[in-house]
């Protein structure tokens, strides 16, 4: 075999080896692709709240637009979150029964790709549901200042769960998001895995209990 042929064969071998690089994403299953992020208002005393109410619909936020929806998967997430709150000692009441806490579930859709900074999301509350006297939407004066500049590359939407302090809203003169959980990654529309996904949010938030 002539040397040049050997060299080409070896070069091909090197390319072959380089092609054998293990692709990290391809080696993740759907569950492993997801990340769960939780944050809290450090000043909140979660044991001081007794009751909560949860919005009947999921707010779908697409850019500056929002609308309410309730798909079977949405319902599964709402049910799972309700059950998790009750397992932590909180009692569900109707919205008209002056709940201490309000729970809003949102589906955040990003149509653009690129780098999204976590501070883009400060928690969300629906003014038409929880009352319009305290501002609304992203940020506002109720926004908790606990996000940093950590960035993640956004490939698809995310689910956000916000717990709003209604008990002290009048005293504080604002609606304050005191806890936020986000689920990002693959399989967000899967109703069957909704309980396990919500369970993970609570598992990493041991302080969230009556």
């Amino acid at each position: 075999m002539k040397p040049i042929r050997i060299l080409f064969a070896l070069m091909a071998s090197v390319f072959l080896v380089q092609g054998c690089k293990k692709d990290p994403i391809k080696n993740l299953d759907t569950e492993e692709r997801r990340i769960y992020i939780t944050n809290q208002d450090e000043t909140a005393n979660f044991a001081s709240y007794n009751t909560f109410s949860i919005a009947e619909n999921v707010v779908v936020v697409d850019g500056n637009n929002s609308q309410q929806q309730l798909t079977p998967a949405d319902q599964a997430y709402l049910d799972a979150f309700r059950a998790a709150m009750e397992s932590r000692g909180y009692t569900q009441v109707s919205k008209t029964a002056s709940p201490d806490l309000g729970v809003q579930v949102s589906r955040i859709i990003r149509t653009s790709t690129g780098i999204m900074s976590v501070p883009d999301y400060f928690g969300y509350w629906d003014p038409f549901y929880w009352g319009s006297g305290f501002g609304s939407g992203f940020g506002g004066w109720g926004a908790p200042p606990f996000w940093s500049t950590t960035t993640y590359q956004v490939r698809e939407g995310m689910l956000a769960f916000d717990i709003i302090d209604l008990k002290n809203a009048t005293t504080n003169n604002n609606l304050k998001v005191i806890w936020n959980g986000m689920i990002r990654g693959a399989g967000l529309g899967n109703a069957s895995s909704a309980p396990s996904q919500v369970s993970q949010l609570f598992e990493q938030s041991a302080y969230l209990r009556k």
Binding site: N27, L28, Y36, I37, N39, S148
Partner: peptide, 13 residues
């Protein structure tokens, strides 16, 4: 570092 908790499968390559 910002106080948040992130649950993830971390892959190093």
């Amino acid at each position: 570092s910002d106080g948040s908790d992130i649950s993830a499968v971390v892959t190093n390559s």
